[in-house]
Design a protein around this nucleic acid. Sequence first.
DNA 1: ATGCTCCCTGTAGCAACTACAGGGTCAAGA
DNA 2: TCTTGACCCTGTAGTTGCTACAGGGAGCAT
Lengths: 132, 132
Amino acid sequence: MRSIGALGKATNTKVETIRYYERIGLLAPPQRTDGNYRTYDDEALARLSFIRRSRDLGFSLDQVRALLSLTDQGTQDCKTVDRIARDHMAEIERKIADLIALRHELSTMIESCGGGNISGCRIIEALSPFDN
Amino acid sequence: MRSIGALGKATNTKVETIRYYERIGLLAPPQRTDGNYRTYDDEALARLSFIRRSRDLGFSLDQVRALLSLTDQGTQDCKTVDRIARDHMAEIERKIADLIALRHELSTMIESCGGGNISGCRIIEALSPFDN
DNA sequence: ATGCTCCCTGTAGCAACTACAGGGTCAAGA
DNA sequence: TCTTGACCCTGTAGTTGCTACAGGGAGCAT
């Protein structure tokens, strides 16, 4: 059994975040000590580690919730898990593509500026709606 | 002069978003009709277009605010503009790198699953803290 | 007894909108 | 003239995923 602070250290999670996960129902309310302190067992540690790892991989809390409920049902519905992971992957692909397009536009814009001694700023011009 | 709805259509911006920009001081409060409707001139259209284009390029509202104040000062401080743009570019590079690393991790995880007929789900295992 | 670190609850803040609720305005058609 | 419908108004609360207090209590060392 460990305190919330110890759990936080073990999972690299802020105390407030753990309480937040409890509030939104991602973590079950743990047992309390006489002094009303939360105490966590190994299962809670495993669950929070799972949540954090999923979050690090970019899953939303809703997706994490879905993954957790699938693992909570003993029936390991691998197809659904696979679909969630693949959907997430597709979204990341989209984001990468968007950012690469953005980088291209930005770099074109910045190139045209060239250092800062031009009287009319090309970046501002590039952002402006009408050609001056 | 145009209504808020017309301005929204012209700049592909929701009416609520325009009012929000006004509330946070990004757009000046426009003139009103007798019936208390907002009316916008061409300058407002240009300003909102600038904002939207900057947002599309991923600048934060704070960055947009800085860019706008630089253009409002007649002195076109190209160096500052350039720095804002380059900082933003660097951040986008970071995001791209992060997402690509993520994609790699995710794809390894998904590959190992292979379709959904395994008894212990490999994705769940990959997310779990301990090897079962 | 005092200080220190930890813990508690509850609420408010962040970005950048979005979505109502509960009304007023205005132009066009019957 | 009346009414319908599309638009507009203000104000407030919701979204995501936390984070940061404020104002207290618990527990341990000196």
